[in-house]
Design a protein around this nucleic acid. Sequence first.
DNA 1: CGTTCTCGCGCG
DNA 2: AAAGCGCGCGAGAACG
Length: 653
Amino acid sequence: MIRVHLDFESRSTVDIWKSGAWVYSTHPTTQILCLCYAIGERPVQLITKDELELGIIPDDFLECIRDKTIIFVAHNAFFERVMWKNIMAPRHGLAEVSLDRWRCTAAKACTCGLPKALDKVALALELSHKKDAEGKRIMLKMCKPRKAKKNEDPDIIYWHESEEDFEKLHKYCKQDVEVERAVDHKLPELTAVEQQIWILDQVINVRGVQIDRNAVENILNLIHEYEKELTLEVNKLTNGYIDKVSKRQRVVNWLEAQNVQVPNLQKQTVEDLLNAGLPKKVHRVLEIKQQLGKTSTAKYQAMMDAIDEGSRLRDTLVYHSASTGRWGGKLVQLHNLPKGIPGLNTDTACEILQEGDMIYAKSMYDNIMGTISSCIRGMIIPKQGYELLVADYASIEARVVVWLAGEQKAIKLFQDATKDIYVEMAKLIFNNPKLTKKDKTERNLGKQAVLGCGYGMGADKFKDTCATFGIIVSKELAKKAVDTYRQNYQAVKRFWYAQENDAIKAVRDGSCNQWKNTGEFLTCDLLSGRKLYYHRPRLDMVLTPWGEEKQAVTHMTIDAKTKQYVRTSTYGGKIVENITQATARDIMAWAMCRCETYGYKPILTVHDEIIAEMPIDTGSIEFFIKILTAPISWAKGCPIAAEGWKGQRYKKT
DNA sequence: CGTTCTCGCGCG
DNA sequence: AAAGCGCGCGAGAACG
């Protein structure tokens, strides 16, 4: 099958990082500056801006468009696709290229556990084709308007467009196509199923979610008003020293001057200080810091920046963003919306806040910022005449890990609707067979153990994790909980060691059970037919956290903290976590494809949750859940369960 | 002045 | 025996 690799350079008054590729591609100021393409192994060809505008398109390229068997490949193909749909076709008169003809090299890179950016992939794969650094600088200059000079009309848009800059831009674009083609050759194709999931990802990203623009605008006014009010107060309280509570250094220094030493200004630290009976003035400053510290309110602005004219927010999902295959979020990160204040009715709160009336809002709620933050989810609504259907899988990873490990006792408990696995765990931890669901404290700890201990967590970490959920446990109790999990679910424990040993053997011998070493990648076959990839595997001696030298699998990965592509080591618990998360993702991704088929059109996914939009009363939650939990050929006996609801505003139940 | 790093926050 | 893991974004600080 012939592949044509292509890349656009473009310019616009729209900031693509804030508004996303869809809004960018539909904006009237957006123009294509050049297009480079390479048919098969032939040399890269250039179509300049002038040629494109005059309709001078080479015949071989026109033939590529016409011939429906020819595949179009781009890096981050979503951009090329929407530029084609919204500019190439309507403005330059070229025929459309259907979605099934597109492939994405960024998707391939992510699938293989490589960085997503083209220059970083090239570096990771040690390709001889490198991104052109000077060209990139020129591109960044040319892609946005320049400021008007003194004697120029400031109301007109000006661009950097010297002839030599254009030449460098052309060279840069050509080079990108070369790099992209080299990356494409070096990496395996997505599996047929994954290609379908990628296509669904593209559909969902174009479909987008409806945003309640009026409410967002009015709540933004409330935020600004409240920020102004509290900032003024903190200014007064500190004699002008703290002009903004977001300036951490200033706040720490001021507190120090009031004889209050703080290690940091994290949420918990501030909360503890507020309970420490500090002088009124200090207390109030911290209170204001807490109110204004909610970065989540920035999401309202992000929404305004990214929605299109019809108030639709698109292009927020990142395919295979996590190495396990999970989606990531962008623009308005919809994957970390605050759950909100427990017990608050956000449907009602949204209706009240959307009035944009501060006096009314204050009369109804004490914690204004907390309420505003709780209402962000509610800004996602269905379009006119439609309703949202929302369903999520119940504790999916805890279920998948016991199923993968073959831990029959736990599988049966998860399957048995009359039993509660958290209570059963609590009974063992507390040596008290009489515990029931009513023993909330005990059950809660059992729940934490069931949900948290599947990947080898130790007692110290377990104690900390419980604390983040507001559950305070002693070191002894934490150890008891962890030990009980391992004792009771020994198959899970064995699973950690089995996977670690298999991975090590595969690196050494080339293969072992589902693990294979191709030299470039260590892979692990998932039951779904997909693979997990670990780049440049090696066996190295590493130092364990408890100070022992040990042989371990190491591989290249993007460090979560530093964002650098570095060698890291892995071990049984972590590998099991990867396999489990990936399997849970596949269960959901397959369900999303079924949802699409049955008309339950997904508009968003949040790891274990699917949000669909349908004309009112054309779908039922019961059927939606059936779609989510339908038997899967490769997941027989996996005890999955889901629950859901429908409504006119998104929320956390 | 723009870019990159770090801290802090939020989610599953 | 022993090790939870996976993300992205805003704002300020640091760097060039």
